[in-house]
Amino acid sequence: MRDPDSQTEDVRQFVSFIVAEEEFGVDILTVQEIIRPVEITRVPHAPDFVEGVINLRGRILPIIDLRTRLGFPERDQDEDTRILVVELEDQTVGFITDSVREVLRVEESTIEPAPDLATNIDTHFLRGVAKLEERLLILLDLDGIFSKEEEEALQGMEGEEESDAPAAQGAAA
C-alpha cells in the first residue's frame, strides 16, 4: 500500500466495488452513501437497465443494476449486495453492486486511459484504468452511464413496448 498520508494533489480517492468478479472504482466525491438493498419498485415501460425506484428517506431514487448495465449476466441479490448512491450531474442515482470493498487512494499518474478493446464494457463511462500493485481497477465515470443510444431509448420509449429487453443489452454489448 502507498503511504496513506500522502496529500499530494494528484492522489484521488475511489470507492471500489465488485460487479461480476471485476473490481471497479468511482470517485469518492460523487458517492453520497452506500446502503443495503431495499425493496425496489418497478417502473413500467422503463428501459431494461433501470431496475426501478426506491424510497431513500423520502426521496425517490432510480436504481440501475450495474450487472445489466455493464452487460454481465443477472444474478440474485445476496448478503453482500450493496446499493451505491451516487450523485450524477443532474440527479442522484442508486447503482446495484455485488459488493463494496474499500476506499482506495490512487495516484493520478497511474491512471491510464481506457483501452478501446480491452473490456466488454461500453467505453462511454469508462474513465480509465488504474494499475494497483497487484491488480487493475476499472474507473467508471457514471455521469456517462446513459450513452446516446440509451438516452434515445429513454426518449423513444413511446414507440416500443413489450420488447424492452433487447434495446439496452444491445447497446451494452
Binding site: 425493496e39 417502473v43 413500467p44 432510480p62 420509449m157 413511446e158
Partner: peptide, 24 residues
Amino acid sequence: LGDYLKSVPGVAGSTILGDGQVIM
C-alpha cells in the same frame, strides 16, 4: 421520478405510501 425516467409513458410520477412503499 427524476429526469431519467420522466418520459416513461403512462406514468405520471410516484408516491410514497404510509408504510414507506413506493408506488407508481
